[in-house]
Design a binder for these strands. Structure first.
Lengths: 188, 188
DNA sequence: CCGCCTCCGTACGCCTCCGTATGGTCCGAG
DNA sequence: CTCGGACCATACGGAGGCGTACGGAGGCGG
């Protein structure tokens, strides 16, 4: 089954999976080829080199792990409920898929930095808009958006590292998100 | 000058510096030897293997990047001021020394995880105690301590990655910390 | 049937790093 | 002064990864 030709996208998704569970250094052509039951001959037909594969994987991540969540959450009309939904969705997603934390772990890599910059701006901007919609003045909204996002990032890191300090069960996590939300949305 | 024998500590500090600016993978015996103007012969006299070097570097980090800050801040009697001092100190330190973010980037590494667990517990615990001293009930204090710490971690990541979304200038950063503090310490 | 294009396997050379073996230097004790 | 231990350089073998060269299978138009 699936003995058909490997596509460029197949390599890219495999590379993204490799980033998620072994970091950027885990994106190596030969091991990846073994996992796909192929050889380097296939790879170097689709890509000029390893860097191109990494770029393709990162673009995949950029498209699938930001906009899709924003869209899914956009149906909710009330800003507060939208924020709650966004946070719980994002944090619960980070529980089972550590790709965000894995990408962040290579934040200084020259191929990662520009993608990360775009994704960060988009997310922080969206959060800030959310707080603006709740009635906070622009400067306040930006601060709270940044705070919310950094808290999410830190949380994702703790979860990926398996730190016991972070809540692990789904229920505890929902309670935690609720209380966090109370703090973040309390009037100045 | 300093042509004297290299000590175990010299290798460990060099390794820690390597982690800070190239990540855990940057701790390689041969490049490190070149940087120290030595050879592998020296290294393998002091350490049995590369893992031992990494452990030594991590223990160095554990001792010098948590307790020392806590002690330095302990002189301040008022809990709120102590928290303010702690946050500004930590965040300003993270501006010029990215070692915290670099260690976190390898959180899943088997040598890093236990050290990170201890450091995380210590820091989150200290922050929670701080909020307790301010009069918050234990559960509230723990939530706020965790929130404060995840926010710090995320902030450190953004700064290390050079993200423009994070404030960079010292003045802007102090203002940001002040506003964050207002949010974190607002009564429920 | 021919030839071309797509896609992939095999085999090779190169590089970087780990770890070991072994010998050399310096220095203090006796 | 010699001998042993601390410290280090050199040289080697081996593993694993990158990129290239090249050949071969399969489909498809002519």
């Amino acid at each position: 089954m699936a003995m058909a030709s490997l596509s460029k996208g197949d390599w890219a998704t495999a590379a993204l999976a490799a980033i998620a569970d072994r970091g950027l250094a885990g994106v190596a052509v030969e091991p990846l080829a073994r996992k796909l039951s192929a050889t380097k001959g296939s790879f170097y037909w689709h890509f000029p080199n390893r860097e191109a594969l990494i770029q393709a994987a990162l673009e995949l991540w950029e498209q699938e792990h930001t906009e899709s969540v924003i869209v899914r959450v956009g149906a909710e009309p009330d800003p507060l409920q939208r924020l709650r939904l966004l946070l719980t969705t994002a944090i619960l997603l980070a529980q089972e898929d550590v790709i965000d934390a894995a990408v962040l772990a290579s934040a200084t890599h020259p191929l990662v930095a520009p993608v990360l910059e775009r994704v960060t701006d988009r997310r922080v901007g969206y959060l800030a808009d959310l707080f603006k919609d709740m009635g906070f003045p622009p400067a306040q909204a930006r601060d709270r958006g940044l705070l919310a996002y950094t808290a999410y990032l830190g949380q994702a890191q703790l979860v990926q590292a398996g730190m016991s300090a972070a809540p692990h069960s789904g229920a505890a996590l929902r309670r935690y998100v609720d209380r966090i939300l109370g703090i973040l949305t309390a009037p100045a």
